[in-house]
Amino acid sequence: MIRYIIRRVLFLIPTLLLVSFLVFAIIQAAPGDPAQLALGEGATAEAVETKRQELGLDQPFLIQYLNWLGNVIFRFDFGNSYRSNISVAYQIQNYFPNTLKLSGMAVLLGVLIGVPIGIAAAVKQYSVFDNIVMSFAMIGMSMPAFVLALVMLLLFSVTLRWLPPSGFSTFRQMILPVVALGMQPMAICARMTRSSMLEVIRQDYIRTIRAKGQTELRVIVGHAFKNAVMPILTTVGLQFGALIGGAFVTETIFLIPGFGRLLVTAVTNRDYPLVLGGVVCVAMTVALTNLLIDIAYAFVDPRIRAEFKGAGGGVFPWQKLKKLVLAMTPEK
């Protein structure tokens, strides 16, 4: 199990390398000259050229990438923003926690409310409660976060003046953005939990447990939910990843100094170091989340644990590879 985790963590390295390289290549291919953008339209060709040299943009593409990579690995230096000349690492430190908090709280809200609702809806399938709740979930799923954000802003901040319209430092400031961003994960969680639970509740082993004389609550929470939790975990993981990237609109509406806004501005400014640093950071978070979810699977399901044991040998199958190569090489 531990070997499996180590292996998965090591696997993050090539993933992140690939992500950073792809992003680097895409930015390079995008039109627009960052030196020109940094100096403004009126700058002379000479000044732009000097700026290009200063930023290292005159170097070949691959050299630029390797320079960047070297700095990141050996000095943990993501470079400085082209625009503001502030260190990228510093900006990530300042902006990322807000987004992490916002997305994390939104997903948490979604899970804490969505999962119990889903369970209740599955237990009372086709009841009035089930129908009402699932209709709401359908609406919640299809409504974009910004619509809800604007409606809530209008209602609770402008009309009723209950909650502050912007900022993200006090608890009262957090309520609106978290609810706006959490509505979709909540709806998705509720629907996923319901369908997953319905499938499990029909299983024979649930009938076996009922035949033991177990209380209905234990049957549902202790046995059925434990078996139904895997697809829910997967959904939660995916939702969290999507929210980190998708919090931009909510952040903009509520004027939250978040990562999404930082990144979007960086892209429009061709601020290569900031975009790169930001994307790698997001990729890392998403990859780590997936890893955590995978480990959580193993905790829940003994069958997956058994698989890990088999695969957890952790040694690269050299023998198999050798055989494969031998099989492919034509004999003399």
Binding site: D204, A211, K212, G213, Q214, K226, D301, P302
Partner: peptide, 26 residues
Amino acid sequence: EMRQIRGRDIAMIFQDPMTSLDPVVT
């Protein structure tokens, strides 16, 4: 009352052993 009767007074063995045990409990 039925919960107390199930298991204690009347127990049941089901048709398909492959699916009648909870897979995530020892």
